[in-house]
Nucleic acid binder design. Structure first.
Lengths: 139, 139
DNA sequence: ATGATTTGTTAGTAATATCTAACTTTACCC
DNA sequence: GGGTAAAGTTAGATATTACTAACAAATCAT
């Protein structure tokens, strides 16, 4: 492991998450696409990637394409997991509309520790089961 | 109204909240106490208050004591309300320990819109009622 | 009332996250 | 293959939030 569990800023976590999504969606990660996805200017994306490189979470040779390191991929997956979970919680459990759920999931994903995330996960799972069993279900 | 609903940064919302608590606890608001409550250096507190003054949310004559304006008080109350609600939600509904609930409520309070806050409020109220009616309750 | 303590401010620095403008590379097309 | 378009970088500026060190003002206690 390159470095212990340095906490990342919101901006860097968002960048990692965008990178993972782009990886899965396009097969490659480009500065321009990161910038578009996060609605930031390209130089801002360049700089964020530079920081992630310093932290050992990304790799890129100048003017080349960007890659997540193993650790970067892990961190990114964790962020994405939180995001998805919170989105579901906000929409399914609380009844928020899709757009609000996504926006606020993105804001919350940086605020909660893994313990709380696990609690929300369990709670959401229970809620969904309870709710989907319309009236009587299996006993 | 001095200014429309300028969104405030987390730091400024935290400052307003601390000021309101100090107002209620001590009757006065001092830079030193704001700094202590937020665990920031005194010059940082001075600076935050200066910004709040510019925004019409606080009043203070140099070296004098600090006050919330009517609008500042409103905003502060809103932040505190969110904080308290989220703390209850995290501890009562999700079962987080008191310390975690408070810390993460403080982080979440800046991330959620009033609509979502209202949803959490309703949900928590329902949950508490449902849960406190131990087994049978009325009917 | 004066000297020491506490409180508050100023000044200067740093890190983060932004931006725009200008430049350099790379890629693509004919 | 050479020129344009797209992608990426560099440089320089700004705002926010934070700090420490040094100073000024207010309070307090004897």
């Amino acid at each position: 492991m390159p470095d212990s569990v340095h906490p990342l800023s919101n901006a860097l976590e968002d960048c990692l998450e965008a990178m993972l999504e782009l990886q899965d969606l396009c097969g490659t990660i480009r500065i321009t696409d990161i910038a578009a996805r996060l609605s930031i200017a390209k130089p801002t994306a360049t700089q964020a990637v530079a920081r992630l490189k310093e932290l050992g979470l990304a790799r890129q040779e100048t003017y080349g394409h960007v890659e997540l390191s193993a650790e970067g991929h892990e961190r990114a997956s964790s962020v994405r997991h939180r995001h998805r979970l919170l989105r579901i919680f906000l929409s399914e459990v609380l009844g928020a509309d899709a757009e609000t759920a996504d926006r606020e999931a993105c804001a919350m994903e940086h605020a909660l520790g893994s313990e709380t995330i696990a609690r929300i996960e369990a709670f959401t799972a229970g809620f969904t089961k309870r709710t989907s069993r319309q009236d009587r279900g299996p006993q």
